[in-house]
Amino acid sequence: MYNSIVLVKQVPDTANISGKVMKEDGTVNRSKLPAIFNHEDKVALELALQVKEKYGGKVTAITMGPPRASDILRECLYMGADEVFLISDRKFAGADTLATSYVLSEAINKIGNYHFIFGGRQAIDGDTAQVGPQTADKLNIPQVTYAEQILDIKKNKVTIKRKIDGGHEIVRAALPVLVTVIKEAADPRPFSAKKVMAYKGAKSLTDLEKLTEGNSLLYTDTLIHEYKERNLFISTLTMDDLQLDVDRCGVKGSPTKVHKVESVVLAGGNQTRVEPTKDGIGILIDKLLEDHILG
């Protein structure tokens, strides 16, 4: 039996930027980008589910983020996670990877009883790949990054094939271990229709508060009780629940600060338009040959 905790993140879909999300001033309209489940984290969840199916155990998914991040926790339930936690507090806002890994490691300590921490190698909004190793450091456990395949688990040791610069290596790590995965590690399973039916009504504290705001006949406490009874309550862990040091959270706990942000403005260049015709392309090739760029 091996228990896994999976770190997942909701990210803006920054991968495909087209002219459609460009504003007239040449910058990108960020609010037009949809929020999605970071793909490599989904791969991590799939791997944790495979470990559970093969060896038994429990899979817990956690995310740190704003209340709307509970969307991806529901998706974790649809894929087969046994339990999910939303780690959310206004005081976590503006955290860099160091502050994030502090909060995550304390949440993991609180949940406890794990053999594996799985996560995607990196999230597409920052691409830093830092939160995994920084969380492992704070938990004082070994890490295996860029994992591509779990070859075998026995006697409290896991054998993993991982990518390295210019090749691969096979490592054997003692449990508990934190593993970050690349997309080749697994194909995330589709949502189970049965589980979607069962969990589509799962709600976090904020979701329930929204319900009571709009209806004076409803009381949050009663709703929480009811949703817990029906196994549809997404637990939230806040700063107080985790008894965190406020100086290590959010902006305050982040050594790196954003000094300046410049939206990328695309100024018109000195570009020559080439007609998409045989003649147009012919002229271009003549020019390139003449300039010794081609030939």
């Binding site: 860099d96 990877t97 160091l98 890994s101 920052g126 691409d127 830093t128 790949a129 830092q130 939160v131 995994g132 190793p133 920084q134 492992a136 450091d137 704070k138 890490q143 990054t145 860029y146 990518k163 390295i164 610069d165 982040s254 050594p255 790196t256």
Partner: peptide
């Protein structure tokens, strides 16, 4: 920012509580 650098730098930054900026 290689596989090794991206494995090592964050762990060291966490341990020494240093700021780290990737790529």
């Amino acid at each position: 920012a290689t596989v090794i650098g991206r494995d090592l730098a964050p762990r060291v930054a966490s341990n020494t509580k240093s700021g780290l900026t990737a790529d």
